[in-house]
Design a protein around this nucleic acid. Structure first.
Length: 574
RNA sequence: CGGGGCGUGGCGCAGCCUGGUAGCGCGCCUGCUUUGGGAGCAGGAGGCCGUGGGUUCGAAUCCCACCGCCCCGACCA
């Protein structure tokens, strides 16, 4: 393509509204422009990259036998009501009505529609397994879109769905996706990690996320420093506990005054006792299930003073129900004390959830449920009983649950997520087939997603420098740029034109910078938009030489013009 | 949804406190010179100052309301 005829609106300065590197660079390089919060237009370069990413995804999905569909973005509300997600997802779903008042929504994911097809069409186990996918737009009314393409309200997703007769079949479909995802992210030139993930509101048994570690990421992952391979989303991560030596002896609880001492830090300062000998009490409220008669249930979560509560684990402990922190009035009503003075002693009608790290501990200090008082010598099991669960948020440096070496906690961008869904959606929508014995069985499903823009964003985060973007060739909008430094010199122009024509004949994506600009402008722009290889025609053209420059490494080498095309093919773009 | 910040030519910003002819850099157009890391000189075009109301002789500037965007938090299949 001739640059002089293209629309590549590069900017010299950082846009005021961009904070993270990928956002700034994608705007500056003319890949994207913003339309509204979390809504972006993909201009020529952005679209070229997106198309390449989607093509890689397509090839690898096809390779595992997945079949490409294209489903509607606009969907009937009934389907979502049938699975219970019309209300469950209402906060982030764009819901609307048609002219006659029927409920519709913009698809935020496609379990419902895919399962609807499956229930109407699949009749026999002989038709299984099936893997169906699409690359399509998704809409989510995010409360806070952010960081350019990181969290969008409209975005592209490759989503696939597997339908199997049983769990063993699901395991196979899941593994196929796992492997396909590895190939996809590798081909996109990303350095990624695979972590165990929390399934959240999707339900289901097993789940992995594909992550790129980056300060711009919104997720947190815990990774073992050693080769044991343990890696998990912080929502899910487990760790061993550093053992603590308690005071021996069977002492009895003893209330003591702690005027205005509310936080763990204040309690440490006041008593001189280290936080690991304290017990913190956090109150959560479970929304009343179903009937309005039943009132909200309160839950008290107990953790070691120096530990943090992991709300995802709390939700798991509560059977997959999301709870919310209690309001101060609710706390006063139940405990007769202010937050800051709460503890497990003498509480009725409230569920006690105790973190595993408190198992076997003795003589701890906790709140007395009386303002300005705490109580010491409290021993779980002896003085109160509760259900033990792993409730703790893993912290950087905690010993790995698998090998005991320290875990590192880092921010990461979620590129893809694979779920074993089980039968939830098939059950709700009645997707069944006859098995070998003629019995009706409910399909077992998996669902698998990849964020297209996330790949682009993560790739820019991982591959850029002061001068701009350094995308890998597989997803860069162009593979080569031919840059004549001065078009007014006929030999330079002719050599450039010829190289451009020959490289195109080789089937390469070539950009020819035929703009009437000074060399410096052309170099800056080529670096900014991230063309992996630049062929520069200039001073040495008279000697029959062209300079080959690699964007990723900064390496430059001269070559004979006559041999340049062959060299590009064999050495750089093989 | 809570907290904070910002809306002024295409982009980045100043002006606002203390009301009185709307300014700077980049970009854009024309011409000449220049030509391997965002050139120089000269001339020029381009602004409902986010929107609506109010105060005032007079509002980019003061007051009120609303809208939009960004950041932190809550939320996030």
């Amino acid at each position: 393509m001739r640059w002089s005829q293209l629309f590549i609106p590069t900017l010299r300065e950082d846009p005021a509204d961009a904070e993270v590197a990928s956002h700034k660079l994608l705007l500056r390089a003319g890949y994207i422009r913003q339309l509204a919060a979390g809504v972006y237009s993909y201009l020529y370069l952005g679209q070229r990259s997106a198309l390449k990413i989607m093509q890689i995804i397509r090839e690898e999905m096809d390779r595992i036998g997945a079949q490409e569909f294209y489903l509607p973005a606009i969907q009937p509300g009934e389907l979502w009501k049938a699975t219970g997600r019309w209300d469950e997802m209402a906060a982030t779903m764009f819901q609307l009505k048609d002219h006659s008042g029927r409920d519709l929504c913009l698809g935020m994911t496609h379990e419902e529609v895919m399962t609807d097809i499956a229930r109407h069409e699949l009749r026999s186990y002989r038709q299984l397994p099936q893997i169906w996918y699409q690359i399509q737009v998704k809409f989510r009314d995010e409360a806070r879109p952010k960081s350019g393409l990181m969290r969008l309200r409209q975005f592209l997703m490759k989503d696939s769905y597997s339908f199997d007769l049983d769990e063993a079949g699901l395991d196979t479909s899941y593994k196929k996706h796992y492997d396909a995802y590895c190939r996809i992210f590798t081909r996109c030139g990303l350095d990624y990690k695979i972590v165990e993930a929390y399934s959240g509101a999707m339900g289901g048994s097993q789940s992995h996320e594909f992550m790129v570690v980056s300060p711009a990421g919104e997720d947190q992952v815990a990774t073992c420093v050693k080769e044991c391979g343990y890696a998990a989303n912080l929502e899910k991560a487990r760790a061993r506990v550093q053992p603590v030596k308690d005071d021996e002896g069977d002492r009895s609880p003893e209330v003591f005054p702690t005027p205005n001492v509310r936080t763990i830090e204040e309690l440490v300062a006041f008593t001189g006792v280290k936080p690991e000998f304290l017990m913190k009490a956090l109150v959560y409220v479970l929304p009343a299930a179903d009937k309005r008669e039943q009132k909200d249930q309160m839950v008290l979560a107990l953790l070691r003073g120096d530990h943090q509560l992991n709300e995802a684990k709390l939700a798991d402990a509560l059977g997959g129900v999301t709870s919310r922190p209690a309001h101060p009035e609710e706390i006063r009503r139940q405990f007769g004390a202010e937050p800051g003075f709460l503890g497990p002693l003498g509480q009725k009608g409230i569920r006690l959830l105790v973190d595993e790290a408190l198992r076997g501990r003795r003589n701890l200090i906790t709140g007395a449920n009386r303002n300005d008082h705490h109580v010491r010598h409290v021993t779980p099991e002896k003085d109160f009983t509760g259900e033990y669960h792993d409730l703790r948020l893993v912290a950087d440096g905690d010993p790995c649950a698998r090998c005991g070496r320290p875990l590192t906690v880092a921010s990461a961008i979620e590129l893809g997520h694979i779920f074993k869904l089980g039968r939830r959606y098939a059950e709700a929508l009645g997707a069944r087939v006859l098995d070998r014995d003629g019995r009706e069985v409910t399909l077992v499903m998996g669902s698998y997603g990849i964020g297209v823009e996330r790949i682009l964003t993560a790739a820019v985060e991982q591959h850029h420098d002061q001068d701009g973007i350094k995308l890998p060739r597989s997803i860069a909008p162009f593979e080569v740029v031919v840059t004549p430094t001065n078009l007014n010199q006929a030999p330079i122009r002719q050599a450039a034109e010829q190289l451009y024509a020959e490289l195109r004949q080789q089937g390469l994506d070539v950009l020819y910078d035929d703009r009437d600009e000074r060399a410096g402008v052309k170099f800056k722009d080529a670096d900014l938009i991230g063309v992996p290889l630049r062929l520069t025609l200039g001073k040495k053209t008279a000697q029959g030489l062209v300079e080959l420059g690699q964007r990723s490494t900064g390496e430059r080498a001269d070559a004979r013009i006559s041999e340049a095309v062959g060299l590009v093919r064999s050495r750089y773009c093989g």
